[in-house]
């Protein structure tokens, strides 16, 4: 008969222990997120080619290469994104030859995966 109150106490203790751990877990998650963000990448994670060093150096000042590697855009879309990052995300505007180097590299190595079985959209040609 005495077990029930004990069980209740144990449950309460467990519950409060869970709550007490929450700030620690929060701290560890914040640190884990920071560690992920700071994880060093090698330039070679990007496709080899002219302009890779420039792309790696310039782009990873803000974000890691996952954003590049997952992308598959035409040269025009890449070029448009350079303006978008400058206008919306405080990137130093890219101009002239340096811009060409970056955009050419991205379009060459991270271009559209395919034009599709019918050669892409007829209204874009």
């Amino acid at each position: 008969m005495r077990l029930l109150p004990y069980a209740a106490v144990v449950v309460l203790l467990c519950a409060s222990a869970t709550i007490a751990q929450t700030p620690d877990l929060a701290q560890r998650q914040a640190e884990a997120a920071a560690a992920l963000a700071e994880r060093q990448e090698e330039e070679t994670v990007l496709a080899e080619g002219e302009g890779r060093s420039e792309v790696f150096g310039y782009c990873t000042a803000c974000h890691n290469t996952a954003l590049i590697r997952r992308s598959a855009f035409t040269r025009e879309r890449w070029d448009e994104l350079m303006d978008w990052m400058a206008e919306k995300h405080g990137m130093n505007p890219l101009e002239g030859e340096f811009r060409d180097t970056i955009v050419d590299y991205l379009a060459r190595h991270y271009g559209p995966l395919t034009r599709g079985p019918r050669g892409g959209n007829p209204f874009l040609n």
Binding site: L25, R28, Q29, A32, A33, L36, A37, E38, R39, H63, N64, A66, L67, R70
Partner: peptide, 14 residues
């Protein structure tokens, strides 16, 4: 990550 299931990683930064 501790406290998280193995979610599909879309990117580290962000």
């Amino acid at each position: 990550m501790e406290g998280k299931a193995p979610l599909i990683l879309q990117g580290e930064r962000p």
